[in-house]
Simulated assay, not measured.
Amino acid sequence: MKARFKARFVLAGELEVLQDGVVEVDDGGVVVGVGKYTGGTVADLGNVVLMPQLVNAHVHVLDAAIIDRDDMYIDDLVGWPYGVKYRLVKEHVSRGRHIPLLRKVAERMRRYGIGCALIYAEYAARDVESVYREYGVEAIVFQEAHGDFPDYPNVQVASPLDHPVEYLRELRRRYRLVSTHVSETEDCHEGGDLELALKELGADVLVHLVHVTDEEISSIPPEKTIVVNPRANAYFVGRVAPVHKLLSLKPLLGTDNVFMNEPDPWAEMKFLHAYSATAGWSIGEREILAMATVWAWEKIRCIPPIEPGRPLRALAVVAPYAGDKVLKYLVKRVAHSDLIAFVEGSRITPT
């Protein structure tokens, strides 16, 4: 059925703030109009911001099996193939213990307002995809390749340095989407992992880029999907990717390993906002919010902007309790407890 939703604020298109905004959807749940309220019958959502659902653009969910295990060097914890993570996650999957754990993580991620996630699955990619579908989260899953050729359309390797060049080329030839971590540590950067990822693996999605130089940034084609993970990088390697220099590539925001970070994009945005201010980076609130929402549509077709011709997949979030700096309020102050409802097509689902 057709519906018209009114909200105190609507974030339309590239996050343009419309006060007293109205969004109209057709019988198929596709937006047919966005504008300011001028009268007529509406479903009044009240004192809320209607905004696109969030995207977590890089998250390892199976490693919740080792939650808060942070007592070792990063490579000993998560390095392929002998890191603690691989041994324990593989054991969980072999015994079927991963499904209940996946459900708990998926439920929490949905509660944060996540509508889409790019998930790295060390194993059991189809199980991950299936569980997330149960919870209404679109999952673009990358099955890790361990020197083999997984029966799944999207693959990732922990690092292109882990494999022969011929294998990297064959992955590119065989699979629809390919991803990898690059330049997360100084050692990997010095080993030339970015060049391998671009020239041999042909990766579509590049994650981390903590140590990249200006020259290397200029070599990255604009169609590539770049994902930064500020909290995880600060925790693991004591350094954050130069996000302010990556903005022309429209980077996305991820939370990385569930065992270390709660998979909460609101927390990631707050951290990046504060870090940017401390570092003197020129990154605006609109850009930070776009990293967790609309840029993902342009890059990998996750969660469309609120504009005509797109399905409505939105969040109703409590509006600012004072003032009218909506974008700053969303990036600096909002938590998942401020979510009122999911608005999907003509359907409203209270949180």
Rank of each mutant, 00 (worst) to 15 (best):
A274M: 13
R176G: 01
R176K: 15
H60K: 09
P153N: 14
N261K: 00
H98F: 02
L249R: 07
V182I: 14
E166C: 01
W80P: 02
E144W: 00
K299T: 10
H60R: 10
H146I: 03
Q53A: 10
L101Q: 07
Y82V: 08
W281Q: 04
D127A: 07
E216D: 11
K90N: 13
P164T: 01
L15K: 06
L289R: 10
A64Y: 12
L77K: 12
G113R: 04
G29Y: 14
V34M: 07
V89F: 07
A158V: 14
K6F: 04
D70R: 15
P311W: 05
H60D: 08
M51Q: 11
Y175M: 05
L77C: 06
L11S: 12
V59E: 03
A124L: 05
Y167F: 02
V32I: 15
C116T: 09
R176L: 08
L168Y: 00
P160F: 02
V334I: 15
H98E: 12
A124K: 00
P150Q: 07
L289H: 11
E186F: 14
Y37R: 04
A322V: 08
P160L: 00
V93H: 03
Y73K: 14
A125N: 05
A57T: 04
G39V: 11
K199N: 13
L101C: 01
E216K: 11
H336G: 02
D70F: 14
G40H: 13
P222S: 13
V212H: 09
E190Q: 15
A241L: 07
G284P: 01
V237M: 11
A65N: 01
E16N: 12
L272C: 07
V105M: 06
L246K: 05
V25I: 13
V165W: 00
G115S: 10
L247I: 09
H208E: 00
V78Y: 02
V49E: 10
S346W: 13
A274G: 13
V326P: 10
F9H: 14
R126H: 11
Y152R: 05
L15G: 09
I288S: 03
T180P: 04
V23E: 11
L327T: 03
H211A: 02
D70N: 15
G254C: 07
D151E: 15
Y37S: 05
A64H: 09
L330E: 06
D193V: 06
A117D: 06
V42C: 02
L196N: 01
C116W: 15
V207E: 01
V23N: 13
I220T: 12
L101D: 01
K90A: 14
S282A: 12
A125S: 06
P221F: 06
Q19F: 14
Q143G: 05
L18T: 10
L171P: 04
G115F: 02
Q143M: 08
M72F: 02
V228T: 11
D214Q: 11
S179I: 01
T180G: 06
Q156G: 10
I303T: 06
D214Y: 10
V105W: 06
R313N: 10
D338I: 04
C302Y: 00
M269G: 08
A241F: 09
R301G: 01
H60V: 08
L45F: 09
E16Q: 11
K6T: 00
